Amino acid sequence: MIVRTLALLSAVALTTCGRGGGEGIDLARAMGLPAEVGAICGNPLILGERIADIGGPGSCGIEDAVRVHAVGKVRLSPSARINCQTAQALYEWTTGAAQPVARQAGTSLTGLKIAASYSCRRRNNASSGKLSEHARGNAVDISAFRFANGETVTVLGDWAGGDWSPMLQTVHAEACGPFGVVLGPRANRYHRDHFHFDISNRSSRYCR
């Protein structure tokens, strides 16, 4: 009987290894997310899966890495490999800033286009200099927003003018809080087509 029980527990562990928590499963299925996706990072509205730690080379890598598919019922495309602190900051910004601004415009935010998440590289893809926060799982880049009314708004195409420019400028500004570093088209030419958000420097934020 004991052997049978241990075998059953082992089978359950194998089938659930890498999954998100049991909480959030119904929401993940309702959103059409993959079967392995559930709630992660202690938040029922961060949907994803735990993945293996990501190693080097050098100082690159993420301990306790996760792959996030959705935050606050907003899908990420593609999914983002980050750590839970970054996932929580993204959730706070999405639900506290981006979604309310979308609703003020008469629609709702349904998706974020992820331009970059984990990547072992230096800042701005330079050949030398400081390591990017992407290399530690501390950063996520967003290049477009998708809405329930069918519209897709891009940083490159809509930042400088048009109906959606005020929305983009507002959500960019309000990221400075959940994130310690916020960069966009005003920062430099490397960020003309996306927002860069990372959780470093939150004690003395840098937002451009």
Rank of each mutant, 00 (worst) to 15 (best):
G58Q: 15
A87G: 01
H69G: 06
E92A: 12
A52L: 13
G61P: 05
T95V: 15
P100S: 14
E63S: 15
G106E: 05
T95Y: 02
A97P: 04
Q85W: 07
P78M: 08
G61K: 08
A105L: 10
H69W: 10
P100H: 14
I62M: 07
C84P: 03
R103H: 05
H69C: 10
E63T: 15
A102P: 01
G55L: 11
K73Q: 12
G61V: 06
I62V: 13
S59D: 12
I82L: 09
Q85D: 15
V66P: 01
Y91W: 08
D64T: 03
I82Q: 07
Q85N: 14
I62A: 03
N83W: 10
I54P: 01
T95F: 00
R75I: 12
S77P: 00
T86P: 02
A65Q: 06
I82F: 05
R67M: 09
A102W: 03
I82C: 02
V66S: 08
R103Q: 14
T86E: 06
A87C: 02
A97Y: 04
A52N: 13
A102V: 03
A65N: 01
G55N: 13
V101H: 09
A102D: 04
A98E: 01
L76R: 06
W93P: 05
A52D: 14
G61N: 04
A80V: 03
P78I: 06
H69P: 00
T107Y: 12
V66D: 05
S77C: 02
A70N: 03
G55P: 09
G55C: 09
V71Y: 00
C84H: 07
V68C: 04
E63V: 03
G72D: 13
N83C: 02
A97K: 03
L76A: 07
H69K: 07
I62W: 14
G58R: 15
D53Y: 07
G55T: 15
C60N: 07
R81D: 09
S59P: 11
D53A: 09
A98N: 02
R75K: 15
Y91S: 09
A102F: 02
A97C: 01
C60D: 07
L90V: 02
V71R: 07
Q104W: 13
A65R: 09
I54Y: 08
A105V: 04
V68K: 07
A89I: 05
G106L: 12
R75D: 08
T94D: 01
A97R: 04
D53W: 08
P78E: 08
Q99S: 14
V68R: 08
A70Q: 07
D64L: 11
D64R: 15
A70M: 04
